[in-house]
Design a protein around this nucleic acid. Structure first.
Length: 296
DNA sequence: GCCGGTCAAGGTCTT
DNA sequence: AAGACCTTGACCGGC
């Protein structure tokens, strides 16, 4: 079991997701920003290794506007040495990486141009992970997309689009249950049709489910990961009190987390902690997992 | 320097 | 039909 946090370290004062306005694009600005992001990423990963936080989500804007036509710099070639060095570091320290292309990636949109842009975005993410020389246990996670008033039809469109994707994309792509439309059962349907692994999100499951307990749903999700995928990844969070359903809590609810680990003690998986205070809560979670002998 | 409006991209729900 | 929300920070222009 590994524990990690997404994209941002709130303590180090460096930032691996700097970007700029599209209208401010210039090759110089682009190169400068990417250098800065990659250097910051290295710094964060070194901190994580020192703390034994061996799971990390890299921000989608590590290479800003990478899937947009405006970028003329061949970033994979230009940054090849730095990318290789980062990848070597990740492998040497047995870090696991995920990425999460955001809400604009919608594979089942009825609009062809949206699907096209989504595919370009996935190609970029896969290409970035490839540029680090990482194997297919390093994943990119997306949601099912919209329902458009006809979920069965929307699921079919997902299947059709998925079958058009290149191996570079599908070998890294996993689907995450969301809190409004696509439940674990819906994602399992896609798994049976396509073989796409299911990344289980605890909080989303608590918002939208078909009556299965967290432990039952998680066990089903973990079975969708095969050897090439590595052990299952999950997103863990709990409900922010007195906030809208589905809102992530500010800081780890240690009792909730301990209970979650206890009810799932027969299972092994890597945990991405979706909590606002980032590494602070990840460190608390790590300690709890160590106390419960889930991490040696 | 600081503040607040704005930022490539979508979809759903509320008003 | 239009706006808020998701989730969130960082940018950038205006003071």
């Amino acid at each position: 079991m590994k524990i990690g946090y997404p994209c941002i370290n709130t303590m180090l004062g460096c930032c691996a997701n700097r970007t700029f306005r599209l209208s401010s694009y210039s090759p110089a600005r682009f190169v400068d920003t990417v250098h800065s992001n990659l250097d910051a990423l290295r710094q964060i990963l070194e901190y994580n290794v020192a703390q034994k936080l061996l799971f990390f989500r890299i921000s989608s804007c590590i290479i800003p506007f990478a899937s947009h036509d405006v970028v003329t710099v061949d970033w994979r070639a230009f940054f090849a040495p730095k990318l290789k060095s980062l990848g070597d570091y990740i492998r040497a320290h047995n870090i696991r990486i995920s990425m999460h292309p955001d809400q604009f990636v919608v594979l089942n949109s009825p609009h062809e141009h949206i699907v096209e842009n989504s595919v370009r975005e996935l190609v970029y993410h896969a290409s970035f992970l490839d540029s680090l020389g990482l194997d297919t246990t390093h994943k990119m996670q997306i949601h099912g997309g919209g329902a458009y008033g006809d979920k069965p039809q929307a699921l079919q469109r997902f299947i059709t689009t998925y079958k058009r994707l290149s191996t570079e994309v599908t070998q890294r792509l996993v689907i995450e249950n969301d809190e409004r439309i696509y439940s674990v059962q819906d994602c399992l349907f896609l798994y049976r049709e396509l073989g796409i692994p299911l990344l289980f999100d605890v909080l989303h499951h608590e918002c939208l489910n078909n009556g299965e307990s967290v432990a039952e749903a998680l066990a089903q999700a973990l079975q969708t990961w095969n050897e090439k995928d590595g052990i299952g990844m999950i997103d863990y969070s709990s409900q922010a009190p007195q906030a809208k359903r589905g809102k992530h809590i500010q800081s780890l609810d240690e009792n909730h987390f301990r209970m979650f680990l206890e009810t799932t003690r027969h299972l092994d998986f890597d945990i991405m902690l979706e909590v606002k205070d980032k590494q602070e809560s990840a460190l608390k979670a790590l300690k709890i997992a160590q106390d419960l002998k889930r991490i040696i």
